[in-house]
């Protein structure tokens, strides 16, 4: 293992280019320190937490840009977020626990790529984008296209998530919903997470976004469900149709923490709760 502490981004990419081992980025360390067993001996570790350019929370072109190494406590204490994206901020209040919030970073949560990660369902419904950088390139992609499979991402070799961009007005005038179901109220891993945004006018759904976590190989928007719901009146929604669509869009599994059937039914229940329907 060789440890690198780059002086700046330019230096980081130079070092990365010359590295011929497996590369790990170290930010908060809350994952890497749990995986010491699985980390091969021949790895290069690049420390990035000290690079402020990766950590800032700022306002750019109508977006709030959250640096990838911003910790969850940075997010919870950000005035920008409190002002523009209070729903996003409040939803993360019970992430892990305070002593982990002070270390763990939003970028780490995203690129760990766990299907259970807390932040992705929120980013999906808020139309977030990712700013990715590499030595000679910088690109912005919709967060929606980042995950491609279980722990598979749209991320090139030696490419880094620089920031998460959320439209400043993403929550404006919308009804919001976020519920994470875990085994306990703190220090818990999600069994099901449902996040939603909606706008209802004259009892008709004018705008709807729903994303779920822990019930697919990666968190995703339920696009077919959204298409079904849009322009419908609440009382036109049929239980069997809703169930049928969700049954195609989510593929929960049984594991030590929960069961397939439970996950399915509770996911359905929470979506109904979000829609405000009582069959």
């Amino acid at each position: 293992m060789i440890f690198y502490r780059p002086n700046n981004l330019k230096n980081l990419f130079e070092l990365l280019e010359n590295s011929n081992a497996t590369n790990y980025f170290l930010a908060g360390g809350t994952d890497i320190n749990l995986q010491t067993k699985n980390i091969p001996k021949n790895v290069n570790i690049f420390y990035i937490s000290h690079l402020n350019v990766l950590r800032n929370i700022t306002e750019i072109n109508g977006h709030i840009s959250i640096g990838s190494t911003a910790t969850f406590s940075d997010i919870l204490h950000s005035d920008y977020l409190a002002k523009h994206l209070p729903f996003f901020q409040n939803s993360l209040k019970f992430f892990a626990s305070p002593i982990i919030q002070n270390l763990a970073t939003i970028g780490g949560n995203i690129v760990n790529g766990s299907p259970t990660n807390d932040v992705s369902p929120l980013l999906l419904i808020l139309d977030a984008k990712l700013e990715l950088i590499s030595k000679n390139n910088s690109r912005i992609i919709p967060f929606n296209s980042f995950y491609r499979g279980y722990k598979e991402f749209d991320l090139q070799k030696n490419e880094l998530v620089k920031a998460i961009l959320i439209p400043k007005n993403a929550e404006n005038n919308l009804e919001t919903f976020y519920q994470k179901v875990g085994a306990r109220n703190s220090l818990t891993i999600s069994k099901i997470t449902v996040a939603g945004l909606k706008f209802i006018e004259n009892n008709r759904i004018k705008k709807i976004k729903i994303a779920v976590g822990s019930v697919n190989e990666y968190p995703r928007r339920l696009v077919n469900l959204e298409n079904y719901l849009i322009t419908k009146r609440i009382n036109e929604i049929k239980k069997d149709e809703l169930t049928k669509i969700i049954a195609v869009e989510i593929t929960p599994i049984s594991d030590f923490r929960s069961d397939q059937n439970y996950r399915f039914v509770v996911c359905l229940n929470l979506i109904e709760k979000f829609l405000g329907i009582n069959f």
Partner: peptide, 11 residues
Amino acid sequence: FTDYTLPTTLD
């Protein structure tokens, strides 16, 4: 301890 979920202050 991740999966043996002892009650926390919030439980």
